[in-house]
């Protein structure tokens, strides 16, 4: 995924089955964002792969004061990249199981 400056990673092992998964997001390269997030911590949250939209979580993070509105797109994209990767891996693992 192209470097957005915001890092999103799994905060727990992905068993490939449960729909809601814990993720951890933090600012790895503050220069790439408009706001000042120099020593902000990592934010852990759960995300439902089946029903939720990354951009909604990004907006909730802005509402909660973690990010400025102006950075909501970058945060949303970073979450979307990680979620797509998780879904892609799950499909690939699933296709691998039925005797391919």
């Amino acid at each position: 995924a192209e470097e957005t400056g915001v890092r999103v990673e799994l905060a727990e092992e992905d068993d490939g089955k449960k729909s809601s998964i814990a993720l951890r997001l933090w600012v790895e390269d503050p220069k790439k964002l408009k706001g000042n997030y120099k020593d902000s911590g990592a934010i852990e949250f759960t995300f439902d792969l089946d029903t939720e939209v990354p951009e909604t979580v990004a907006q909730e993070m802005v509402d909660s004061g973690f990010f400025l509105e102006i950075d909501v797109k970058i945060v949303g994209k970073s979450i979307r990249d990680r979620v797509s990767l998780i879904k892609w891996r799950r499909q690939r693992n699933a296709s691998g199981h039925n005797g391919k």
Binding site: R7, R24, W26, E28, D29, S40, G41, A42, I43, E44, F45, T46, V57, E60, M61, D63, S64, G65, F66
Partner: peptide
């Protein structure tokens, strides 16, 4: 340090913890 928590009005819980140490050294 105890992790700070923020619960959004929509109900999602955000838990703030220090950035994973291993990542900081990579910069």
């Amino acid at each position: 340090s105890s992790a700070a928590q923020v619960v959004h009005s929509a109900g999602r819980r955000f838990i703030v913890s220090p950035v994973p140490e291993s990542r900081l050294r990579e910069q």
